[in-house]
């Protein structure tokens, strides 16, 4: 099981190639409004996160994820559930 800080760091690394160069990525960064992620990029990011943490991410959780922090907390939950 990964710590919240580990997850946050890993997510930041995963997001980096999908956002414009120089774009800051912090806990409160909005994935759509600030990073401009479209649905295709989101799906690619989900696949990468699933592989990195060896988890399954149900599409049902996506409406509850707005910020990087929401994303990290959701991964932590799924990681803890052993999903």
């Amino acid at each position: 099981m990964h710590s919240y800080d580990d997850i946050l760091q890993k997510i930041t690394e995963i997001l980096r190639p999908f956002v414009p160069q120089g774009q800051a990525i912090a806990e409160e960064t909005d994935l759509v409004a600030d990073l401009g992620l479209d649905s295709l990029k989101v799906m690619k990011i989900l696949e990468t996160v699933e592989d990195s943490f060896d988890i399954l991410i149900p599409l049902n959780v996506l409406p509850d994820i707005r910020t990087v922090k929401d994303f990290a907390l959701q991964i932590q939950k799924l990681d803890g559930d052993g999903q």
């Binding site: 799906m43 696949e47 399954l56 991410i57 149900p58 599409l59 049902n60 999903q83």
Partner: peptide, 21 residues
Amino acid sequence: AEIIRFRHNDINDLEKRLKRL
């Protein structure tokens, strides 16, 4: 229902997910 995707036409990815589920 809970909705989970597998990679397009990737039988190994499908089996990995079925095994986990």
